[in-house]
């Protein structure tokens, strides 16, 4: 009984720690992104709220909370209100299977440094990622606005297309690790991170991950120049904030997955394991920001060509080659 209660408390502590870290990081990623974009464009970025603008996320949060929560006339109210929560929740829940350290032994008791180690953790991640599509598609549809609808449709099509490439690209990693559990995958990289073994899979995964998070150059569902703000055109206040939060958490998730699948997860010298994971996540996210500052948005046909005619064939070929090596 006591043990059970203790385990529950430890689980709660882990969830709290991970959620806090993820949320704070999301808020500051916004600032970092804006600052960096500024510098990439030879300007300062936000520098008015606090020194170097470090209070900007706080100000943004207060602003979003205080803004009026509008529901457009003719919107499907229930779905409209639920959609942002779907996006944010699915993104947050993916962190449940990301390991952030080796097993810790406290008082002779082993505590796994992961919220829950599911043996099909990888499928769980993909399942949640697929669910996230609903938030975008339904939010766009329920707004009763042509821009939002177009954004939602684009989002659904894009995310479903790139999910295939994302999934296929990771098959060689599973084959090498021999497990769907993220803990096992990290453990399998004790010697060599998979990026060195599977550079092609890494490339396909990274590109697909950016498409999954709807970031430039894959931001067609939002496409400000064409659709206003795409699927979240009609959202305001904290509901828009949830979409925004979802996107940045999703970035972190993708950073974490890249780290787990290809960069050896929490493994690294000198620094404590969670810090290593954080460093790797941030590194991947910074790369995404750099991409945003550099590349223009793809056209819709280019997007589909890249997904279906380049990434998926590459991933399939990679599976065959890896299969041949593993079998041999």
């Amino acid at each position: 009984m006591w043990i059970w209660l203790l385990g529950y408390l430890v689980l709660m502590a882990k969830i709290t720690a991970v959620l806090t870290a993820v949320m704070v990081l999301a808020a500051y990623l916004v600032l970092v992104e804006r600052k960096l974009l500024g510098r990439f464009q030879v300007r300062y970025g936000p520098n008015r709220a606090g020194i170097y603008g470090i209070l900007q996320p706080v100000a943004d949060g207060i602003k979003l909370l205080l803004k009026e929560d509008l529901v457009p006339e003719g919107a499907d109210r229930a779905i409209f209100l639920a959609a942002p929560a779907v996006v944010a929740t699915t993104a947050l829940m993916m962190f449940a299977v990301v390991p952030f350290g080796p097993r810790l032994t406290i008082g002779g008791r082993e505590i796994p440094m992961v919220i829950t180690d599911i043996n099909v953790g990888l499928l769980y991640v993909f399942a949640l990622s697929s669910l996230g599509v609903y938030g975008v598609a339904l939010g766009g549809w329920a707004s009763n606005s042509k821009y939002a609808l177009l954004g939602g449709i684009r989002g659904a099509a894009q995310m479903i297309s790139y999910e295939l490439a994302l999934g296929l690209s990771i098959v060689p990693v599973v084959m090498l690790a021999g497990s769907f559990s993220l803990v096992d995958i990290v453990n399998a990289q004790a010697g060599l991170p998979f990026i060195l073994v599977q550079p092609l899979a890494f490339g396909v995964f990274l590109i697909s991950a950016m498409a999954e998070t709807k970031r430039i150059p894959f931001d067609l569902p939002e496409a400000e120049t064409e659709l206003g703000a795409g699927y979240h055109t009609e959202y305001s206040g904290m509901r828009f904030g949830l979409f925004f939060l979802g996107e940045y958490v999703h970035m972190q998730v993708m950073g974490a997955l890249v780290a787990v699948f290809f960069l050896g997860g929490w493994r690294g010298p000198v620094l404590p394991p969670p810090v290593w994971l954080l460093v790797k996540i941030v590194f991947v996210v910074l790369f995404m920001i750099w991409v945003r500052a550099t590349l223009p948005r793809l056209r819709y046909d280019q997007l589909m060509n890249l997904g279906w005619k380049v990434l998926i064939p590459l991933a399939l070929v990679n599976i065959l080659i890896t299969g041949a090596f593993v079998a041999a």
């Binding site: 960096l36 500024g38 510098r39 990439f40 030879v42 300007r43 750099w290 500052a293 550099t294 590349l295």
Partner: peptide, 18 residues
Amino acid sequence: IAAGFYTTGRHLFVRPVT
């Protein structure tokens, strides 16, 4: 693409014109 990344990356070390 690499040229693009070089250009933007180099800007990180340029003094902002703002």
